[in-house]
Amino acid sequence: MITFKDVSFSYTPTVTILRDVDFSIERGEFVAIVGSNGAGKSTMLRLMNGLLKPGVGEVFVDDLSTHTNKTSKLAKRVGLLFQNPDRQICCNTIAEEIAFGFKNLELPQEEIDATVADIIEDFGFDGARDPFSVSRGERQKIALASIIAVAPEIIILDEPTTGLDYRECIHIMDKVTALNETGTTIIMVCHDMELVLDYAKRVIVVAAGQIIADGNAHEVFRDTFAMQTASLLPPQIIELATELGGQFEQADTVEQIVDIVKARKAV
């Protein structure tokens, strides 16, 4: 669905931000991109929908090169949620905001109204409220809802949960997971490794503009070298499992560890 072919990118001639990035993401995957501040994660996301064009190499959405296809056209396939919802929100009511993405799609009005009503009910918004007057978590949800509304096949999220409390965070992640289960491809940048372990199936580690690890969460978080190079701390449960070693070595969740302990006690 999204393919990076030997991509390098720089904003200014002197500093290269991404170097020889080469990977592809298939339909229905749930991918987390992790790395320290300034590693180039947001830059990668901007390349994925053509907001930025690669200096070297090519980026494809399905089989469309971002060089020749405009971002506004790709928007039907790729929805990108930015870290700051205030940059995205621009309408007077929440209902208008959620309907905004449809303006460029030429769908029948009844269909639009029905979808918007569904989404509002699903998220429990008050459609007539001013989106700027609600809380930060609520605005983040409005921004997410307005991306989900137009049902893109790929949803890209840049730190969707930063600054949200645990409940809001889980709420957003559950929505995203539900979409993933119905076939939407999810790509997410996230600094919370626990969350990544809980939700993402594949993890891509970026350090200084290069991909240094790419695989399922279970393996990547056990790759000590990659974790250290990217200055990341693996989730505590994985640290615990590794420290305990033996039978526990391969455990990823609290339940797995508990099960092993219980089984041992029984013996």
Binding site: K70, K76, F82, N84, R87
Partner: peptide, 15 residues
């Protein structure tokens, strides 16, 4: 930044 966000939602700023 705002224009980026809106372009990503299909507003034709890249015209």
């Amino acid at each position: 930044g705002i224009m980026e966000a809106q372009t990503s939602r299909g507003v034709e700023f890249d015209t």
